[in-house]
Design a protein around this nucleic acid. Structure first.
Lengths: 214, 214
DNA sequence: TATTATAGTAAACAATCGTTCACTGTCAAG
DNA sequence: CTTGACAGTGAACGATTGTTTACTATAATA
């Protein structure tokens, strides 16, 4: 796909990121630099054909997100967007590993865009975000003030990091088993195992963590 | 706001999360359980008046995201959504700290919803996501296979975690200063300071980290 | 009891939507 | 030189949009 077409797609996707809705065909005449809606209709038709945009069941035009179930496809090479840093969908472009660094702009393949929301949240209706306090999980790379994404719908299993209520207190810990009974283990040698006296309730499984700097 | 109204708002927002667009007034008659578009018009008018939905400059209805610049408002109390786990906007409900746990459903205030994308990404056009390899930042809670969000537009300053190219290699490290010259410091005692022989280029500042479990 | 407020119904309206039609101009290939 | 492909223009069309109008039923208030 040539640069002009790619820039056109980017401008549509950028509209979506900024305005939280897809542009109308009329609005796209301005975005794409054409005068007629039929020209837009044909250009959009090409993007739909290539799977870069889509229509829903009612015929409304929608953006297409990168496939977050396959982060870092094995053979993907990547390149920076142009110096102006055009992104698609307001989402992040997934480059590669830190060690691979930032490839030269000469590489031509499109970067996948990913939505972090969609990366971490599999079940929107049963997922929540909590802020971590305390350093009990610090050796698992979970620090105070980090956020964890918790999914209540998942069945907890041994080794999961869970949000649990034990003897009336809430905590975040590894879920372990000892003699057939669930116990909790911190990721900090300062804290011992938690063996419930009365009740251990697992409220949800931690499926992701987020930290914000600056 | 009573439960019926809140459920109506949730159903609109859930439509947005699932369909990537806002429903039409006609579609909202089904969502809200009314027969006439004027009833929808009035209900939506109430949400707009309360700041729970909005119109853009062209008159299109849009969802309203929680204010991510004020995560965890100091006096916010929170409660779980209903057992069915209704979420708004497909976004996460921000509850509270782990120690506060999950409050009882009896508490009535709305949870803020947050978009992680919007939480971490301030400049979509200059932000990227990289996967971490190596354990050089492990004591900063950044582990191999974590993702970092990098913003190229920020001016790096001392103490930032940066993506840098030093003597031809890419790395992620703390940016430090020694005798007026920039150097790099790992967060793992296994690794010494990096004092560039030739060139140190900072490509971007790390503004967030993400880890995915399961 | 009367009045007001609220929540809804049905229909009509002007505007805009996405799509189709007919056409033009440019470029590449035979 | 002719033909076909491609990218575009302008206008028209049927469908749908959000908004407005007129009204009804119920509940709350004075």
């Amino acid at each position: 796909m040539d640069v002009k077409l790619k820039n056109r797609l980017d401008s549509i996707n950028r509209f979506y990121a900024e305005r939280t809705r897809m542009p109308t065909y009329s609005e796209m005449t301005d975005l794409l630099g054409v005068k007629s809606k039929n020209a837009v209709f044909k250009i959009v038709g090409k993007f739909i054909e290539k799977g870069l945009l889509k229509k829903d069941s009612k015929g409304y035009l929608l953006p297409v997100f990168g496939d977050t179930s396959a982060i870092m496809p094995p053979n993907a090479s990547a390149f920076f967007a142009a110096a102006a840093g055009v992104g698609s969908n307001g989402l992040l472009k997934l480059i590669g590993s830190v060690e691979a660094g930032f490839p030269s702009p000469a590489e031509e393949e499109l970067l996948d865009s990913v939505s972090i929301d969609k990366l971490l949240i599999k079940n929107p209706n049963s997922s929540f975000m909590l802020e971590v306090s305390g350093d009990s999980m610090i050796n698992a790379g979970i620090m105070p003030k980090d956020f964890v994404v918790v999914d209540k719908s998942l069945t907890p299993k041994e080794g999961d990091i869970v949000i649990a209520r034990v003897d009336g207190d809430w905590t975040i810990k590894y879920l372990r088993k000892d003699n057939g009974k669930y116990i909790l283990e911190a990721a900090n040698p300062k804290y011992g195992l938690i063996i419930p006296k009365q009740e251990l309730t697992v409220a949800g499984v931690v499926v992701g963590t987020i930290r914000k700097y600056r």
